[in-house]
Design a protein around this nucleic acid. Structure first.
Length: 275
DNA sequence: TCTATTTCCTGTCGGC
DNA sequence: TGCCGACAGGAAATAG
């Protein structure tokens, strides 16, 4: 399983920079149409062909390939991966998009479950693209304020877990880190957003920034098999306290970790520590 | 405007 | 051993 959240996408971005920066894309082949979200007029391949990869950025969980005139927006969703391989190497089963490079190599997009999506947008329209225009702040101290979190949560009747997964509140948090953040904040995942006290919101704010920063430094979380374009995974799984720990004892109080469903997601928490 | 539900996909796992 | 249903889940579309 891969499950790229912000820290994993950051790792993927850095690996890709080493391999394809300044390379020209000579041709594009799409083997599974549903991966391409837009443009819907079939100009995806022809527009990219001939453009150089000027830089690679990240916004939330979105990878951004900055080309000459356009930006390729890529979301890996559950299991999307990029690989750079010699064009002569046979395609593996789950290869869906192929970018032929001027080096004789190919940048290949693999995705077992075909959940990933790509969009192509003109540079000037990048920030107004629907995928990016509503994204909340990045989970770093310079961008995310306690005031913003309060303003968002105070008007939400739905669960705080659902709010953490909402990319409009904070960009880049997924199911693994949402559970870890709530455990660190000692907040029960089913608590309504509007029920959180100022002290709890402050704790949540600190945990969001702290955990996401540590996970980025660790290169993300490797569950079973996950790796960047170099085949290199992350190490944050050693720091997980509740995610995937159902029945194991809480590191604080030795209560068995519970698993429930919140906002349609598997949710792990300590029933003693998180209130 | 806000929220809950459905859809997209296929490999893996537990139960029988 | 083999089959079959449940499960995993991010974002967008849809419905209320």
């Amino acid at each position: 399983m891969f499950m790229p959240e912000l820290p994993e996408v950051e790792n993927v971005k850095n690996g890709l920079k080493d391999l394809v920066l300044n390379r020209k894309i000579e041709a594009v082949t799409v083997l599974w149409d549903n991966i391409i979200k837009d443009p819907a007029d079939g100009t995806f391949q022809s527009t990219i062909s001939g453009q150089r990869i000027e830089s690679i950025e990240r916004r939330g969980k979105f990878l951004l390939f900055i080309l000459d005139t356009h930006v390729l927006i890529s979301h890996l969703r559950m299991e999307g991966k990029f690989r750079v391989e010699e064009a002569s190497k046979p395609l593996t089963k789950h290869t869906h998009v192929i970018f032929r490079l001027d080096t004789g190599e190919e940048l290949r997009y693999l995705d077992v479950r075909k959940f990933g999506r790509m969009s192509l947008v003109e540079k000037d329209n990048l920030l107004s693209h629907p995928s990016l225009s509503t994204l909340g702040p990045e989970p770093v101290a310079e961008a995310l304020s306690v005031q913003w979190l309060s303003q968002f949560l105070n008007t939400r009747k739905r669960s705080v877990k659902s709010c953490l997964l909402d990319q409009k509140m904070v960009a880049g948090i997924g199911n693994i880190y949402a559970d870890e953040i709530l455990f660190a904040s000692k907040i029960h995942p089913e608590r309504a957003g509007e029920s959180l006290s100022p002290a709890e919101i402050k704790a949540l704010h600190g945990s969001i920034i702290d955990i996401m920063q540590k996970a980025v430094r660790a290169g993300g979380t490797t569950i079973r098999t996950y790796s960047n374009a170099h085949g290199k995974g992350g190490n944050y799984q050693q720091n997980l306290t509740v995610y995937g720990k159902t029945g194991k004892l809480c590191v604080n109080c030795q209560t068995p970790i519970s698993k429930i469903k919140v906002a349609q997601r598997g949710t792990h928490y300590c029933p003693t520590c998180q209130i």
